[in-house]
């Protein structure tokens, strides 16, 4: 679906490149995540993939089209939800969706059904200026689905959502995948990447440092360990101990035998730990 080779990009008159030779491909029907701290080049990459930034170097093919020869036909089959919801604030939710739907020649989805899917059915006649941030994010998501896009770009799709709506949103994204559509997610939320993405690319300083499925990444780079809290006199001490061969681990056995243990928790490596370990960077 997306094929990117040796992609370079520099903003304006900047002499140094923001993107320094990206290579990756996104397969049809998968959820692909771009992960990285802010300023790493995630948004720049997405802007190139949707045709907003033009003067890049390298080869970019999206849906079989070389983006150097982009035309308005291209936008019939992609959907984009930007990070900051951009909607007409003096218009109602329904009016916004109906307006954008008019630009597509392909059949568009019923706006009311979309609103119902994200739990906004009661707000369809409400002006966007009266929406909370979370409501705007959900409406923004509805808009990106209007034209039944084969390829969906979501920039921080869960920002500002409460836990209930976060779960709803995750289910909706998976439903799009079930329809055979391809989805690119840009995020710095590791939990979202972990639960949703088939494969993730770590982007740091304009380069892709790693691409793999979250599960494999955790297996390859993660270390299973446990955390134990125990009493020494009046104070509480904490130790992290590898889970390999616990029965013969002297430190662990020593604590168990000689101290009053308060808690023991197993700690699998999270995607975040893998990220920190492989890139040497924090995500925020």
């Amino acid at each position: 679906m997306i094929q990117v080779n040796d992609l370079h990009f520099a903003y304006g008159s900047n002499s140094h490149d923001t993107l320094k030779g990206l290579n990756f491909q996104v397969d049809t029907g998968e959820i692909f995540g771009f992960l990285g701290p802010s300023g790493a080049g995630k948004s720049t990459t997405q802007k190139i993939l949707i045709g907003i930034l033009k003067n890049y170097r390298g080869a970019v093919q999206v849906n079989g089209l070389d983006l150097h020869h982009l035309n308005s036909e291209f936008y019939e089959s992609i959907g984009v939800a930007f990070e900051t919801p951009n909607l007409y604030s003096k218009f109602t939710a329904l009016e916004n969706l109906e307006f954008f739907a008019q630009f597509y020649t392909n059949e568009t989805r019923n706006p009311l059904e979309l609103l119902a899917a994200v739990g906004l059915e009661d707000a369809s006649e409400t002006r966007v200026s009266d929406f909370s941030k979370g409501m705007k994010v959900r409406l923004n998501f509805c808009r990106s689905l209007l034209n039944n896009p084969k390829l969906l770009f979501l920039d921080e799709p869960t920002a500002g959502l409460d836990p209930v709506n976060l779960r709803k949103m995750e289910a909706l994204i998976l439903a799009e995948k079930a329809r055979g559509n391809t989805i690119c997610i840009t995020t710095h939320d590791m939990h979202v990447a972990d639960t949703l993405c088939d494969r993730v690319a770590f982007i740091v300083d304009g380069e892709v440092s790693l691409i793999d499925s979250p599960r494999d990444l955790k297996l390859q780079h993660g270390e299973r360990f446990l955390e134990i809290e125990y009493r020494v006199g009046d104070s509480v001490q904490t130790k992290s101990i590898s889970m390999e061969k616990l029965g013969t681990n002297d430190t662990f056995q020593n604590i168990l035998n000689n101290h009053y243990v308060e808690t023991i928790h197993s700690r699998e490596a999270s995607l975040e730990d893998v990220f920190v370990k492989t890139t040497g960077r924090l995500l925020q």
């Binding site: 045709g51 936008y75 019939e76 900051t84 951009n86 909607l87 630009f103 020649t105 034209n147």
Partner: peptide
């Protein structure tokens, strides 16, 4: 300011 052109130019609108 509301980033509206951005969302218009990712539709087929020319």
């Amino acid at each position: 300011g509301q980033n509206l052109p951005q969302s218009l130019f990712v539709t087929p609108l020319r």
